[in-house]
């Protein structure tokens, strides 16, 4: 049932600090996560969501963070997106140390550099598709025209519709248009197809692939759906809070070819 393209192990990072140091100097590295642990305290229980994780996101890549529910993939995404702070370790975005930024700093980071796509789209119900995109472009430095962003996701015709008048897939594409319209450096997608049916999910993946290809935005998709891994440049597998494997796809397949 799973249709997986061949993968090659690239490097095991978890217990190799020296190579992590080396990565810091990797000219293609945009994000550098270094020895990051995240511990949640839930009552008297400590949950180690991430244990000593070191990983990079590279310029222009399409990365899939693959893991089961509770593996720590969302925690990693949150830390990359400046929504959460590691309990220990450091996170660099280019030469900014996100671990040292305060709330305002993180807000600015999200505003200027990160595009988010949520599982449940989270559009503003009182704004039309176009206005939802414009909401973000209004506060961005060099945005794409909101109408162009909607054209990019194939919803130019539906621009004046309110979220309640759009299907789930359409809502998610508007969300993608909203995320990319400000020309973020990184697009973080949390189970973007999780709430969608098969066909619609694939349509959304196509849009993500297109955005990554045409705009060159680093795209990190977290999913538990292994089938999606085939369209990635790299697949980062997470399990029990550690990165178990990082694979580089020699051949990327097109979203239309994916099936699950």
């Amino acid at each position: 049932m799973t249709h997986l393209p061949p993968m090659q192990p690239e490097v095991h990072l978890t217990d190799d600090k020296k190579s992590a140091e080396a990565k810091l100097t990797n000219p293609d590295s945009v994000f550098h996560v270094h020895n990051v642990s995240r511990i949640y305290r839930m009552g008297e229980v400590e949950v180690h969501a991430l244990r000593d994780v070191t990983v990079d996101l590279l310029r222009g890549e399409f990365a899939v963070l693959l893991g089961t529910s509770g593996s720590g993939k969302s925690t990693l995404l949150n830390i990359l997106g400046g929504l959460d702070r590691p309990t220990s370790g450091e996170v660099f975005y280019r030469d900014h140390n996100l671990t040292r930024a305060d709330d305002d700093g993180l807000t600015r980071f999200r505003r200027e550099h990160v595009g988010f796509v949520f599982q449940f789209y989270n559009l503003i119900p009182s704004l039309t598709a176009l206005e939802n995109v414009a909401l973000v472009t209004e506060i961005a430095g060099h945005p794409i025209d909101p109408a162009d962003a909607l054209d990019l996701v194939g919803l130019g015709q539906r621009r004046d519709h309110f979220p309640s008048q759009l299907s789930g897939g359409e809502q998610q594409r508007v969300a993608i248009a909203r995320a990319v319209a400000k020309r973020p450096d990184v697009l973080l997608c949390d189970e973007p197809t999780g709430a969608l049916d098969y066909a619609t999910g694939k349509l959304v993946l196509e849009v993500l692939e297109r955005v990554n290809r045409e705009l060159g935005t680093i795209t990190a998709v977290i999913t538990h759906n292994a089938a999606i891994a085939g369209m990635a440049d790299r697949v980062i597998r997470i399990s029990s809070g550690t990165i178990t494997e990082v694979l580089r796809n020699e051949v990327k397949i097109r979203p239309s070819e994916i099936s699950w």
Binding site: G81, D103, T107, R108, F118, N122, I124, V136, I139, A179
Partner: peptide, 14 residues
């Protein structure tokens, strides 16, 4: 609340 939190995630200030 959800809407507002989304906006915070998207980089809107407090």
């Amino acid at each position: 609340g959800n809407e507002l939190a989304s906006l915070r995630v998207l980089g809107f200030t407090q």
